[in-house]
Simulated assay, not measured.
Amino acid sequence: MVLTRRAYKSITRWLPNEILSEVVQWVTPPDLVALCQTSHLMKGIATPLLYRAVSLSKISGMKRFITTMERHANDPVSKAEHVRQFCIHQFAPNIPENILQKITLVLSYFSRLTSLQLFSLNNHFPELLRTAHFPSLTDFRCHVLPRLSSSLSSFLNRHQTITDLYLCRIFDDAMPTLDHIHLPNLHTISMPGSFIPCLVHDDTNVVIMCIFWFPDQLDNVEIALPALCRLSSADKHALDAHCDRSHEPWFIGLAAKNMPDVCVLTCHKLGNLAGRVTPNQVV
């Protein structure tokens, strides 16, 4: 349906901005760009939605994004204030050092960021991890590298607002070690089992746990399961375990002994085939 100029004016004149905002939330990014060019009213409504979630995976897109952020840095309401979610995609190519530095600088403008995802296998952000602080950050996800583990621990301890934490190991690297991490507001964790003892358990209330035990860290299972139990003060919680031996009776027995309040236990192999649990293996 194509609106006439008269009908368009009547809609923007009589519909409250709150309703227009709800409608615009269903618009695709290219159409948001088009809406920004129709009127000051629609630009004001569409711009925050256009920049709310940013995902970068190509050098060309990173350059355009950096240029836009820098150009509007001194606006009364800068574009950076609209960004709530920022992601560097894991398939991003090797990013030139000057682009990495500019991305780190631009990120410092995101005062209202709630979700940060650094899933690039080829690029690392040591300066960001050492210095950045996002007061409203609740969701953090990244690949963990041995040479950045200390900076990562420091970054996490500066962001005690985090409720959802996802740490991923890069398989070709040795298993990193982390310093003690205190995140009292944690609700959901997903990480290798060797990281669990690093989490300080005072006043935590983790409810959802997705843990990966790799072949070189199976000895860690008996240490990590009691630590997982201490991370939760809730009556019930769920454990999603990924381990090549998670379907065996010894693992089920350890989980039942050390985590008696688990209400949902899901076991997977690390490969594509899920481990089967027979009735006589359930404790």
Rank of each mutant, 00 (worst) to 15 (best):
L118K: 01
D139W: 08
L137C: 04
Y109R: 15
S150G: 05
H143I: 05
N122K: 14
E127H: 14
H89N: 12
H133W: 12
Q117F: 05
L118F: 06
F110Q: 02
L116Q: 00
L167W: 03
I103L: 15
T163C: 13
F140P: 01
L118R: 01
D139Y: 14
H124S: 14
F140K: 03
I88K: 04
T131I: 11
Q160F: 05
L118H: 04
S111L: 10
F134C: 09
T161A: 12
L128C: 14
F119K: 08
T114L: 04
S136D: 15
A132D: 08
I162K: 03
F140M: 03
L100C: 11
S108D: 09
Q90I: 01
L156H: 06
L148M: 06
A174G: 11
I162S: 06
L129R: 08
N157K: 08
T161C: 10
S151M: 03
S115L: 04
K102G: 03
S108Q: 12
N94I: 07
L118N: 03
T138E: 12
N94W: 07
H124I: 13
S136C: 15
A92N: 05
D164N: 15
A132W: 06
F134H: 10
L128W: 11
D172N: 09
N98I: 07
E127F: 11
S108T: 10
